[in-house]
Design a protein around this nucleic acid. Structure first.
Lengths: 286, 286
DNA sequence: TGATCTTACGTTTAGCGTAACAATA
DNA sequence: TATTGTTACGCTAAACGTAAGATCA
């Protein structure tokens, strides 16, 4: 029967060109490679090489065999990945989200509903989330809109409304509400890891500069010590009462007021159902 | 690395249900199967079975693994076949024909043009010939019409015209030509192995019966000793002068006067070109 | 009690590496 | 002479089968 290790040696020979280099690359002795190539010819039942007294190269059939071997090895690789992914999907719920806020509600709800399951989440770009859904890498996806994409079940479950926070002395402080076009040109303090909001800010306010802070402490220090505007939302928690001294001005553009949708495959609807029961009164408006 | 023998044991277990039966079926000892299943779990890195003290069965992941294993084994099987077929195609020319007559001219021409090649031919039904072209089982196909099917090169190269042969005393003997509808209802002697002509006779003359003779000697004896009509064509050889005493009446229907086309893949055009040079004067009109 | 799966143990064999050889550039 | 591929030889490790043990119907 065909041996995948032998096929790998064959492929390596096609890539390297000499048996010695195969031996070196795969950390096995060179005579072993000779024997493997002879054995492969036995197994295929056809000759794969043209041999000189001290040289060997693939013939046309050999080239065909290498092509088939490559396909085969990649197929076995996929088979392994598929089985592992399937197994993982049985004991872990994987969530890909476009923003952090929904996860603050989703993760606790899921771990109390499924205490035996591992919950894995990550914040990704929209295309990456769609790939995750397609490949079934994730069972749940959180998108800032109803995904017309694919045949996934879509459930609206949270709204997030953006406000800008400025010191009382700021030029904008007296406005009851603002739009992105009014904000465009001001420079802002921004947290990192805010998902799709980051790109949205850059698109909606192309004339602005954004001072992205990776460290949370440094971000908070800058909010306290500078008069640079920053953002918050109805879902954000302000445990430090950081924004107590600032004025919150709602941003009225539709893009700034998003409804998050939960997307999932039909076989994962149970997870999404568990999330419908989230008590939206838990949402801390700050 | 994954071992295809182990995967085969896994599949056999899925089919049989107990390790003992796997051992029996594959002619290996039962403890070996136990070890293989344990090893497969190691390789996949996930558990594939639910085990009782003296029973074992696939879990959900195991079922998934079996599904992947089946795909993989069939893929390796295909890979082997592909390589062997490719190798064969390098030293043999395989021809699938809808009728025997074209082969009488094609086979000698090819073996003189390609003396180092093995020439293999067979007479098949039209759908089988199309499959042979698609799977590249054959390099050349002979069809009784221009194949609009696929992107194959088509070359017309021989015409075959059907005549009916009757004794001088036969009711039809005085007609200069006939049509299938005039022949319909008479019973005929027929050779076996005449390809698509067999089906055509049955379709065009549904009221007739056909006495198909497998043995050539018996066929000839019946032609001599009976007054049953039989068929011949411009391509048929009558070395015994069997039909000397009979009247040949051309069948005028277009279906009875076919042009054979050679179909081949682009990479096999050289073979078809060699056949263009067939001297059509060799065609013995009898 | 017979069937099933697992573990333990001893043997075999098949695969590997070292070494020697042949041929080329 | 250095590099490459093949063959020969001896050893080791891995895989197998037998036997024994445990559990269930």
């Amino acid at each position: 029967m065909l041996d995948l290790n032998e096929l790998e040696q064959l492929i390596t020979f096609a890539d390297m060109g000499t048996l010695s280099m195969v031996a070196e690359k795969l950390h096995i002795s060179q005579p072993t490679i000779t024997r493997t190539m002879q054995h492969l010819e036995e197994v295929f039942g056809v000759s794969l090489f043209v041999r000189g007294k001290n040289k060997i190269m693939l013939n046309d059939t050999g080239i065909k065999a290498v092509e088939q071997a490559r396909q085969l090895l990649s197929a076995t690789d996929n088979a392994l990945k598929n089985v592992r992914a399937f197994d993982k999907s049985l004991h872990t719920i994987t969530i890909s989200s476009c923003a952090p806020a929904p996860l603050w509600y989703v993760l606790p709800a899921l771990s109390s509903a499924y205490p035996d399951m591992t919950i894995a989440s990550s914040i990704k770009s929209m295309p990456a989330i769609c790939e995750d859904l397609d490949s079934e890498f994730c069972q749940l996806a959180i998108l800032p809109h109803n995904s017309q994409y694919g045949h996934y079940t879509n459930i609206p479950f949270l709204k997030e409304n953006l406000s800008v926070c400025v010191p009382a002395s700021h030029a904008l402080a007296k406005k009851p509400s603002v739009t992105f076009s009014e904000l465009n040109g001001f420079n802002f303090l921004l947290n990192s890891e805010i998902g799709f909001w980051d790109e949205m800010c850059r698109v909606q306010m192309p004339a602005s500069r954004f001072l992205v802070q990776t460290d949370q402490f440094e971000f908070e220090e800058l909010v306290r010590e500078s008069s640079l505007p920053c953002f918050t939302t109805n879902l954000a928690k302000d445990s430090q009462n950081l924004l107590a001294d600032r004025i919150r001005i709602p941003v009225t553009d539709p893009e700034a007021n998003v409804t998050y949708y939960l997307a999932c495959h039909s076989q994962s609807i149970a997870y999404a159902d568990a999330l419908k029961r989230i008590d939206t009164n838990d949402v801390i408006v700050c």
